[in-house]
Simulated assay, not measured.
Amino acid sequence: MPRILISCPAGAGVVSTGYRTQDVDLAADRQPRSFRCPCGGVHTWDASTAWAEDGMTDSAKRAYGLRERA
């Protein structure tokens, strides 16, 4: 399953949140989640800041509530 990614707000680039699309359904669960980033910080993310890595179909992205990559 594709990983859920965000852009690190501290400038580390695109990073994995540690979740996969099978682990969380962002269309149903709008709660923010947090993770320890490779930059050393703890970041919070939700459906408005996350997307699935390449390889996930557009319809599956919509089903999981993931936005298109910015």
Score class of each variant (00 low, 15 high):
S34C: 14
T57L: 12
R33P: 04
I6F: 14
R3H: 02
V42T: 13
G65N: 07
L66H: 05
L5F: 05
S59G: 12
R36E: 13
A10W: 04
G65F: 00
M56C: 10
E68L: 08
H43N: 10
S16F: 00
H43Q: 12
A60H: 09
S59D: 14
F35K: 06
A52L: 14
G11C: 04
I4G: 09
P32R: 10
F35Q: 04
G11L: 01
Y19H: 11
R33Q: 13
D46Q: 06
K61C: 15
P2M: 04
A52H: 06
W45C: 07
D25L: 03
A28T: 09
L66P: 10
A10H: 08
G18W: 00
A60M: 10
S16K: 00
R62A: 15
C39D: 07
C39W: 00
R69W: 05
A12S: 11
I6W: 12
A47G: 14
W51P: 02
Q22V: 01
A27F: 15
D23M: 02
A10N: 13
W45F: 15
M1C: 03
C37E: 12
Y64H: 11
E53S: 05
G55W: 09
Y64A: 11
P2L: 00
A27C: 13
P38W: 08
A60Y: 04
D54E: 12
G65L: 07
M1Q: 02
V24Q: 13
M1A: 06
E53L: 03
V24R: 08
H43W: 15
E53G: 14
Q22D: 14
V15T: 06
Q31S: 03
Q22A: 07
T44C: 13
G55C: 10
D25F: 04
A12V: 03
V24N: 05
V15G: 00
V24T: 01
D23S: 03
S16N: 03
R3I: 07
A10K: 10
L66R: 07
P32N: 10
R3S: 02
S48A: 14
M1V: 02
S48R: 10
G11E: 07
A50F: 11
D54G: 12
L66V: 07
V24L: 11
A50S: 15
S34F: 13
A52N: 08
T17R: 00
Y64I: 06
D58C: 09
A12T: 09
R20C: 11
R67K: 14
Q31V: 08
D58K: 11
W51L: 06
A50I: 12
C37K: 05
G55Y: 05
A70P: 15
S34A: 13
K61N: 10
D23G: 01
S48K: 12
A10Q: 10
W51G: 00
C8E: 07
V24S: 01
R30D: 13
K61Q: 14
A27G: 14
A70H: 12
I6R: 14
P38V: 12
L5A: 02
W51I: 08
D23E: 03
M56P: 07
S16L: 00
T17W: 01
T49M: 13
V42Q: 03
